[in-house]
């Protein structure tokens, strides 16, 4: 077992442990923090796959922005901190069986999948390569993404804004 396999095993088990903790912890904030562990180990896996830029973006957006935003969401909605005990046992089991069937199907597909590894040059100036591809080949999707972000920004503001009558009522 060489170093790379060892690093992969550590990162993979950290990611899975984070996910399992998310399913089992009681408090909502703890669930979110355990998912930060998962997101960070996925960033480590991206570095192993010579995607340094994507790894940095992962740390910034997922473990930074999205998680903090979700924590804001929890703090602003005054909730019962503890997740109440699952009432619907039957549904949990049905979901579990369905997911196990899905897992088994995909597992069979993955074990039969053979790929021949080719030499890649992704690790040489990774960010430069991404920039070249983004601004030369994918410039229209890139601009469309900016429109999407603008729409999401405006939509989020409009949805989260208090309505006028409501404000008057509260004053």
């Amino acid at each position: 077992m060489n170093g790379e396999v060892l690093v992969f095993l550590i990162l993979a088990s950290l990611a899975v442990i984070g996910g399992l903790l998310m399913l089992n912890l009681k408090k909502v904030v703890h669930m979110l923090l355990s998912l930060v562990l998962t997101f960070l180990s996925i960033a480590g896996l991206f570095i192993m796959l010579s995607a340094e830029f994507v790894a940095v973006v992962q740390v910034l957006i997922y473990s930074g922005a999205v998680t903090i935003m979700m924590i804001f969401g929890i703090m602003l909605t005054r909730h019962q901190d503890e997740q109440r005990v699952q009432k619907n046992r039957v549904r949990t089991w049905v979901v579990l069986i369905g997911i196990l069937v899905f897992f088994y199907t995909m597992y069979e597909a993955i074990t039969r999948f053979v790929s021949v590894e080719q030499a890649s040059e992704l690790h040489i100036e990774n960010t430069k390569q991404i920039g070249m591809a983004l601004y030369a080949k994918y410039v229209i999707p890139f601009e469309l993404t900016s429109v999407l972000l603008l729409v999401a920004l405006i939509g989020a503001i409009v949805l989260a804004k208090r309505e006028e009558e409501e404000e008057v009522k509260q004053e």
Binding site: A15, G19, L23, M70, Q86, I99
Partner: peptide, 18 residues
């Protein structure tokens, strides 16, 4: 595995943030 964990959480958890 991560996808299955996420799917299970999305279908069974009751808190919308989760």
């Amino acid at each position: 595995i991560l996808f299955c964990i996420g799917l299970f959480g999305a279908l069974t958890k009751r808190n919308t943030v989760i």
